[in-house]
Simulated scan of single mutants.
Amino acid sequence: MSRAATGEGTLVVLDIDGTLLDTPHLPAWRRGLARVLGDHAPDRSAEISVEQYHRHVAGRPRQVGAAAALGIAGLDPTPELVEELAVVKQELFLEQAEETVLFPDARDFLDAAAREGTPVAFCTASRNAGELLAKRLPGLDGGDWLLDRLHQSLGPHGHYGDVPRPEALRRVARAWNWSPDRCVLVDDALSGVLAGQEVGMRPVLLDRFGLGVAAPGCPVVATLDELRPLPGGLRLPVA
């Protein structure tokens, strides 16, 4: 893959869950679904594969993810079941949330971005990811600078879990007075990448698990080490 393209003069928008933070969302979805199925459909399987999670659940608002998880299990995602699973999953996630860590390549990437003064911003549909990241940034080089950029990116609520992903990305761009077509989005979820393309951002898909997920015209990297923060943007692979 050529490494010739440079996204200079761009705002680098970073997804948080799965891109920067190794959050226990998939285990929580699996355990939550098992609990709900035990009450309503004990003959159904609660297993969600890594590929199913990244294709259908990751990067989506909680209720949307719950509906997708129920569908994977072969259940009709009625509003009552969706809400039940969403609540149970959140309870289980919070039990493990403090075990969340930065991926090593994410730590290196953020350290480099702070040193270079790369114009970074953050976006998440999770109601918890922003707070979890905020607790882990002070230990990094330039942690205070990164923390300020996190807070400005996510606004007073600390997340964009209540709006569709394309609108969340537009809000992040507006928070920094950048047009979406001058933004590079780095996301590990196909849904996030497609939302970025919808609003005119240039997306990069992070495929940590080698799932072969792809979107037309979107470069794919296996690790953030393949992306180089620059003072004016990001060294990019070519799709």
Results as ranks from 00 to 15, higher is better:
Met1His: 13
Met1Arg: 13
Ser2Leu: 13
Arg3Asp: 14
Gly9Asp: 14
Val12Thr: 07
Val12Ile: 15
Asp17Asn: 14
Asp17Val: 11
Gly18Phe: 03
Thr19Glu: 07
Leu21Ile: 09
Leu21Val: 07
Asp22Leu: 04
His25Pro: 09
Leu26Arg: 15
Leu26His: 14
Trp29Gln: 08
Arg30Trp: 09
Ala34Asp: 14
Ala34Gln: 12
Arg35Asp: 14
Arg35Gln: 15
Arg35Val: 15
Gly38Asp: 11
Asp39Gly: 14
His40Phe: 12
Ala41Leu: 11
Ala41Tyr: 09
Asp43Val: 12
Ile48Pro: 01
Val50Thr: 15
Val50Phe: 08
Tyr53Gln: 11
Arg55Ser: 13
His56Trp: 14
His56Met: 13
Val57Phe: 06
Ala58Lys: 04
Arg60Gly: 09
Gly65Glu: 06
Ala66Lys: 10
Ala66Trp: 02
Gly71Arg: 14
Gly71Lys: 06
Ala73Asn: 07
Ala73Met: 03
Ala73Leu: 06
Leu75Gly: 04
Pro77Gln: 09
Glu80His: 13
Val87Met: 10
Gln90Asn: 15
Gln90Asp: 15
Gln96Ala: 15
Gln96Lys: 13
Ala97Leu: 10
Thr100Gly: 01
Thr100His: 06
Phe103Ala: 09
Asp105Tyr: 06
Asp108Met: 04
Ala113Tyr: 01
Ala114Phe: 08
Arg115Gly: 01
Gly117Asn: 01
Ala121Thr: 00
Cys123Tyr: 07
Thr124Leu: 06
Ala129Val: 04
Leu132Ser: 09
Ala134Arg: 12
Arg136Gln: 13
Leu137Gly: 00
Asp141Val: 13
Gly142Glu: 05
Gly142Val: 06
Gly143Arg: 02
Asp144Met: 04
Trp145Gln: 12
Leu146Val: 10
Leu147Trp: 06
Leu147Asn: 05
Leu150Gly: 02
Leu154His: 00
Pro156Gln: 07
His157Trp: 11
Gly158Met: 04
His159Arg: 00
Asp162Ala: 12
Asp162Asn: 14
Asp162Pro: 05
Asp162Thr: 13
Pro166Cys: 06
Leu169Trp: 05
Val172Leu: 05
Arg174Gln: 11
Trp176Tyr: 14
Trp176Ala: 02
Trp178Glu: 00
Ser179Lys: 13
Cys183Ile: 00
Leu185Arg: 05
Asp188Thr: 07
Ala189Phe: 02
Leu190Lys: 07
Gly192Met: 03
Leu194Ser: 05
Gly196His: 01
Gly196Cys: 08
Gly196Tyr: 08
Gln197Phe: 09
Val199Leu: 04
Gly200Tyr: 07
Met201Arg: 00
Leu206Asp: 01
Asp207Leu: 00
Arg208Ala: 08
Phe209Lys: 12
Leu211Gln: 09
Gly212Glu: 02
Val213Arg: 11
Ala215Asn: 09
Ala215Met: 01
Ala215Lys: 07
Pro216Gly: 08
Pro219Asp: 00
Val220Arg: 10
Val221Met: 10
Thr223Ser: 15
Asp225Leu: 10
Asp225Trp: 10
Arg228Glu: 15
Arg228Asp: 10
Arg228Tyr: 04
Pro229Tyr: 03
Pro229Met: 05
Leu230Asp: 02
Leu230Val: 09
Gly232His: 11
Arg235Ile: 07
Leu236Pro: 00
Ala239Val: 11
